[in-house]
Design a protein around this nucleic acid. Structure first.
Lengths: 337, 337
DNA sequence: ATGAAAGCGCTAACAG
DNA sequence: CTGTTAGCGCTTTCAT
């Protein structure tokens, strides 16, 4: 029941009476090896189910064929879709994924980064934690040559590859949709403004109002981006409710929590107050009324992140200039607005 | 911009004019090294930000401090909670997680397993894909000494550590809850019966009926365990609806889809037909009426899986007999039943 | 066409 | 107290 040492190239060599180098070469079809020995070695390796030790290979090649991922939380539909897309493509390309959760904690995130570096990952994918305000560890890693692609919650201070949603556009079309319905007083439930995505969506919201000639009332933007915060701000939101006719929430779960709070207080959605979210996860179709929302393509963004990273890994030293791929979101109109 | 070789123990040795072994020992506080050299080496290492190469360590120690995970799909709240719990504990114990998705595909699952073995993971955590009917690769790996813990969708043919929900009990309390409400004709939306969890929940359902002296009508059990299947069976379910007064679905999303289908057809939930789910993810609180369901603790099960695995990894060769940890689920009564 | 030997970064038995 | 050496599993010159 103790794990027996898996057999190595050396074992094969000994058992077959050849040298290790011959085995190594035969296994990778090196032209120098005679067809007969090749056949012999290959069939034997097959028969004993030989498997190369990836660790040794990585050490030797100075390349691990693994990609590191730092993500704020796995248990969010958006993020889990992203991971799913990443895993899928990475797998197809012969890479593996080491996943670390920052839990929205800057310190933890820095440790995650170090862990991945220690594991000599070939590159990393990261979406920044909400609390991250200083980027030194990432800057350092990047400058020392580690390929990094940021996705969704990117780092403005580093010129890396990036995969983003056009949050400005998203915030804008969401707000415009509300405006087109006739809304005049739109509450924005916003993410922290040091997050690029929070800022982008907020500014899109402002832009739409401005274009329509409407004032941007400061009291109509609340820092509130989780269902928990909605609950915490419930009273405040209800107080505001009589004076508003629309809500644009920075994500679906916040939008849904807002709908529930409003409904409980007797407001009708969308008749009294229309609500639009951001994300379009499965929850959007479960809430009643079904949620009108901005579609964010997690799975595709995950794939794109890996694609961008692989492009660099497969062309080492190619000095490709940093790319940003922007996903232009569209509205999914359902019932809530 | 090309990645410079990270510096090694050898570099330090050269720069400091000592031997590599001295550096190695100093860094790990070996008693043999004089305090002065220790200090010198440590401060220098600190200063140049030396980081040991985990790959080399793994190769040397024949231990990788990484755990492999094979999971049917990341994008399911239950599974992502499990992953989250696993990652959390593994991280705390100095292990990393390599995650593979089987996508409910037996072939892919076998390849995942091989990949993880190739990476010399210290142990693996797996929840079987729905399509898996033969367990040979797992049996082989297990017999060759690889520590495996199955969770949720376990393998009946291998005597490993297991983390499970008491599905029989879950199915039973769900059904009993319906019975207590006065339901007499309960439709069961079931998972495939070759899945232990599907069978357990079904048998719990039967047990509850039997105890109550009610007949088990074959036509009231449908193989249907996803929202998509609910849609596919919509007509059939509607046909059945007038003759039933309760539904027990094998998971929340199926229960929710059933509620939506029933409501659309004009049936009132729970008045005409009461519905109970299984899982208790966030969706349960979004559907109206809120879902009464069986609580399944993903995060805790994830932690428990890692705990069980670590127990083995930390006591190599200890011949601990296989353990099964069963999570006894409880009802969460809300509005739908 | 094959083998010997060095080395990827690290540790540990063995020698001083 | 410190250094030399071998070796984890593999690839790759360099010989032959």
């Amino acid at each position: 029941m103790t794990k027996p040492a898996p057999l190595t190239i050396k074992d094969i060599a000994r058992n077959l009476g050849v040298s290790v180098s011959t085995v190594s070469r035969a296994l990778k079809d090196h032209p120098d090896i005679s067809p007969e020995t090749k056949l012999m070695i290959k069939t034997y390796a097959e028969q004993v189910n030989y498997r190369p030790n990836v660790l040794a290979l990585s050490l030797r090649r100075q390349k691990s064929y693994t990609i590191g991922l730092i993500i704020p939380a796995i248990v969010h539909h958006y993020f889990s879709s992203v991971i799913s897309g990443m895993e899928e493509l990475a797998y197809k390309e012969g890479y593996n994924l080491i996943i670390c959760q920052s839990n929205e904690n800057q310190h933890r995130e820095a440790i995650n980064l170090q862990t991945l570096i220690d594991h000599r990952v070939d590159g990393i994918l990261v979406s920044l934690s909400k609390t991250t305000q200083t980027f030194d560890p990432f800057i350092e890693a990047f400058e020392s040559g580690l390929p990094i692609v940021f996705f969704d919650r990117i780092c403005p201070d580093i010129e890396t590859d990036r995969i983003v949603t056009d949050d400005f556009h998203g915030g804008r079309i969401a707000t415009e949709h509300l405006l087109k319905r006739g809304c005049k007083n739109i509450l924005h439930l916003a993410a922290p403004q040091h997050l690029i995505i929070g800022k982008g969506r907020y500014e899109g919201y402002c832009e739409a109002l401005k274009n329509k000639g409407l004032p941007i009332k400061e009291e109509l933007t609340l820092k509130c981006d989780t269902p928990e915060e909605v609950m915490a701000l419930e009273k405040h939101i209800i107080d505001l409710a009589p004076r508003i006719d629309g809500v644009f929430a920075v994500n679906d779960s916040t939008a849904i929590a807002a709908i529930q709070v409003l409904q409980k207080a007797g407001f009708r959605v969308p008749d009294d107050i229309a609500v639009v979210g951001f994300g379009d996860g499965p929850n959007a179709k479960i809430i009643h009324p079904e949620l009108t929302t901005v579609v964010q393509k997690g799975y595709e963004m995950g794939r794109a992140s890996v694609r961008l990273l692989l492009q660099r890994l497969n062309n080492p030293g190619a000095a490709i200039s940093p790319q940003t791929i922007t996903f232009k979101p569209v509205m999914k109109v359902r019932e809530s607005a």
